[in-house]
Simulated assay, not measured.
Amino acid sequence: MKVGSGKGRKVCLSLTGVVIAIVLLIVILALTVFKAKHPVTTVDSTKLEDFHMGLDTPKLRVDLNVTLHVDVSVKNPNKVGFKYSDSTAHLNYRGQLIGEVPIPAGEISSGETKGFNLTLTIMADRLLSNSQLLSDVASGTLPLNTFVMMSGKVSILGFIKVHVVSSTSCNVPINLSNGTVGNQECQYKTKL
Score class of each variant (00 low, 15 high):
M1D: 06
K2P: 00
V11P: 00
C12P: 00
T16F: 13
V18L: 15
A21D: 01
V27W: 04
I28Q: 02
A30M: 12
V33S: 06
P39F: 05
T41Y: 00
T42C: 03
V43L: 06
V43F: 02
V43K: 01
V43M: 04
L48V: 15
H52Y: 07
H52W: 01
M53L: 07
G54F: 02
L55A: 11
L55H: 03
H69N: 13
V74A: 04
K75L: 13
N76G: 08
P77D: 08
N78R: 06
K79D: 08
V80C: 06
N92G: 04
N92A: 11
Y93A: 07
L97P: 02
V101K: 08
V101W: 02
A105D: 12
A105F: 05
G106P: 05
I108W: 02
S110R: 12
T113C: 06
K114G: 03
G115V: 11
F116V: 09
T119S: 15
I122R: 02
A124M: 03
S129T: 10
S129G: 09
N130S: 15
N130Q: 14
Q132C: 06
L134V: 11
S135V: 10
M150Y: 01
S151G: 12
I156S: 07
F159D: 03
F159A: 13
I160T: 11
I160A: 10
K161W: 02
K161N: 14
H163R: 11
V164P: 00
V165M: 07
S167N: 14
T168L: 05
C170W: 04
N171P: 00
N171M: 08
N175T: 11
G179S: 13
K191G: 07
K191D: 12
L192N: 09
